[in-house]
Structures are given as structure tokens and as C-alpha cells.
């Protein structure tokens, strides 16, 4: 594939332009998918980080988790039948710190379970982001619906719900704040998903989508990501198409002297591969650097898995784009091309 390489070396500008466009598009794609992922983490880490399992809501709640009230008898029976199951509730709320500053958060309480923080009455465990707001272990927090006080017992990482930090509290305290006795949701981890007559059941994914704004947010960002991927494929097709048009005479001559069409395709593929690989390597490096320097408050979360998956997609899309542009090369008649060159 020396000839493909030589062409790139002799026509640097042309290929540099294509490369930099691919670089910009893939970089943008990485950043946006990092944001999508970060926002999703920010919106629902509490739920996302739960193992695979099944969620249950009260049928009367009409799939809206904060209207759900699970009958205590039903709940007790399930927890007996499925010892690893847990019932939990989430509601948005506020706490006031010692300086009377208000912090918005999501109160979470659950029955005894390894999946949620265990807290005693009057205690509270917070997401680490509140530590950055100046709250410390041992601080006393209050809530205007709550007669007592919460003492901060500690912090946990990556526990977010609906873009707010999560606060784990005891069930009795939760019941006092929200004046409900019933829990909202039952979660049964594991593969077996029993059908429970009084309850609607949801997979992890379905339950995530039931969180207000989660679906809309993720859908629009993912749409942008896939649009960018498609655009980059089209860019390849268009760019190679235009280059091929300029090179009809050359391809004609190469065919006239007996070069196989597949060799011409290999030339195009080789060039596409080299350009994409270099551009992707650059934008992978830069996006990783970006995730290091991204401002603390920016919900940016880009895993290497995502980057590599997207890179593979870019490769495939570039390949398809380049191949489509190659079909015109396949149809070039050597004679026509030679005569065109002479005119």
C-alpha cells in the first residue's frame, strides 16, 4: 500500500483537512457522550448503580414512583418470600446547615439491605458533593418538617438522584418528614422476576426511564451523538467522492495498465484507516485530558469503554463512507478516463 501512503504524503493538505474534520467531529462526539454519561450519572447514580433486578410499584400509582404506596402487608410478604429484596423510597427535599444555609437533596430510606446505606434514627449519610459545600462529619442539619435533628455520620461517593445529592436517613425519620407510612418501591435483585399481582414491575432500564427528565435528557444527547457519527460517515463519503472525481484520470490509467479494482478499493480503505486512526488517537487523548481538567461541577464522565466503542463505530462508519465513494471508482472505464485526461 505504498502508493496510498505516497499519495497522502504528496497531497498533505487535502488529507490534513479531512483528518482535522474527523478529529473535530469525533472529539465533539466524545465530549457530548461524556456529558450524556455524566448527566445520567448525576441524574440517577442511585438507581444506575444498583445490580440487575426488578423494580415494583403500586399498580394505582400509574407508573409514577412518587405516587406509589405499597401496602404494608404486601411488602412484608415479599420481604419474607425474597430475603434479598428491599423496599425503598426517594423524595426531594431540603436540609438547613448550621449557618442556616439551605441544601437541596434527595432523601432516601430503605428497609435493611446491603444495597443502601444503613443509618440510625437521627443520623444522616450524604453524597460527597455536599462535603465540597462545606458540610462536615458531625455537623447538625435540620429540616422544617422534622422535629429532631440529623447528625452527619459520613459521606458516600456517587450517590445522586434527579441531579441532587442523596441523603440516606432512617425510615422513621422519613415517615415523619413526608407523613407516609408506606414505602414507594420494592427492588428484588437477581434474574428471577416474580410477577406480583398488586404491583407493576419494571426492569432497571424501564425504571430509569420512569425518572422524570432522565429519558428526555438522555435521548436528546444520544441523538446528537448518533447524528455526529452519521455526519462523519457522510463526510468521509463526500470527501472521498470529491477526491475520486479529481482522480478519475488517474484511476483510469491504473485500470488501463491492469490494476485490479480491489486494489483501488484497498488504496481508499488504507487512506481512510490511516486518517481515522490518527484523528481518533488524537481525540481520544484530548478527551481523556479534558475529563481530567473538566471543572468540578461539570457532570462529565467518559469511560475508556465508551471511547473505544465509539471509536470502533467511527471506524465502521468511515469504512462504509469510503466504500460507498469507491463504487464510482468501480464504474470508471479506463478508456473514458484516459481520453478525459487528454482533453
Amino acid at each position: 500500500m505504498k502508493i496510498a501512503w505516497k499519495e497522502m504524503k504528496k497531497n498533505k493538505t487535502r488529507f490534513l483537512i479531512l483528518g482535522s474534520i474527523i478529529f473535530l467531529v469525533s472529539f465533539l462526539t466524545f465530549i457530548i457522550s461524556g456529558l450524556a454519561n455524566g448527566l445520567s450519572q448525576d441524574n440517577a447514580a442511585l438507581i444506575k448503580d444498583l445490580p440487575q433486578g426488578q423494580f415494583y410499584l403500586d399498580k394505582d400509582a400509574d407508573k409514577t414512583y412518587n405516587l406509589s404506596k405499597i401496602d404494608e402487608g404486601v411488602q412484608q410478604q415479599i420481604l419474607i418470600d425474597h430475603p434479598e429484596a428491599t423496599a425503598f423510597s426517594v423524595q426531594m427535599g431540603f436540609v438547613n446547615d448550621e449557618d442556616d444555609k439551605q441544601h437541596s437533596l434527595a432523601f432516601v430510606t430503605s428497609t435493611d439491605s446491603a444495597l443502601f446505606e444503613k443509618v440510625k434514627e437521627g443520623e444522616i449519610v450524604l453524597d460527597r458533593s455536599l462535603q465540597e459545600d462545606g458540610i462536615q462529619v458531625g455537623d447538625v442539619l435540620t429540616n422544617n418538617q422534622f422535629s429532631g435533628e440529623f447528625i452527619v455520620k459520613g459521606f458516600v461517593d456517587q450517590q445522586k438522584y434527579s441531579h441532587a445529592p442523596v441523603a440516606f436517613i432512617d425510615m422513621t425519620n422519613y415517615q415523619e418528614i413526608y407523613r407516609v407510612m408506606e414505602m414507594q418501591t420494592i427492588f428484588i435483585p437477581g434474574k428471577d422476576a416474580p410477577t406480583l399481582s398488586a404491583l407493576d414491575s419494571f426492569s432497571n432500564k424501564e425504571f430509569l426511564n420512569a425518572i422524570p427528565s432522565y429519558n428526555a435528557e438522555q435521548m436528546s444527547l444520544n441523538m446528537i451523538v448518533w447524528f455526529l457519527v452519521i455526519i462523519s460517515g457522510m463526510l468521509f463519503a463526500i470527501f472521498f467522492y470529491m477526491m475520486n472525481v479529481q482522480k478519475i484520470g488517474l484511476y483510469g490509467i491504473l485500470k488501463a495498465i491492469g490494476m485490479k479494482t480491489i486494489s483501488l478499493f484497498k488504496m481508499i480503505w488504507y487512506q481512510m484507516l490511516v486518517i481515522t486512526a490518527i484523528s481518533l488517537a488524537l481525540s481520544i487523548a484530548l478527551s481523556q485530558a479534558f475529563s481530567l481538567i473538566a471543572p468540578e461541577g461539570m457532570p462529565f464522565h467518559l469511560t475508556m469503554d465508551t471511547v473505544l466503542m465509539l471509536s470502533a463505530v467511527f471506524m465502521v462508519v468511515g469504512f462504509i463512507g469510503a466504500t460507498i465513494s469507491g463504487f464510482q471508482v468501480k464504474n470508471i472505464e479506463p478508456l473514458q478516463a484516459i481520453q478525459q485526461g487528454e482533453m
Binding site: I3, E7, N11, L250, I253, A256, I257, G258, I338, E342
Partner: peptide
């Protein structure tokens, strides 16, 4: 095509060389 590649040679009115290959690379390509 195979005959063109192995048994025939072509010279045209204009030389139709490959613009990005040196003289010796043109021959190597053939």
C-alpha cells in the same frame, strides 16, 4: 485485465504518469 497487466504495455499521447510517484516508483508500480 490480467492480459493487460502482464502481456501488454501502453503509451499514450500524454504520458499519464502517476503524479505522486517518483520515476523509479512508477516502474515499481507497474
Amino acid at each position: 485485465r490480467h492480459i493487460r497487466a502482464t502481456d501488454f504495455g501502453f503509451v499514450f499521447q500524454s504520458s499519464h504518469l502517476v503524479p505522486f510517484l517518483t520515476v523509479e516508483e512508477q516502474l515499481q508500480l507497474m
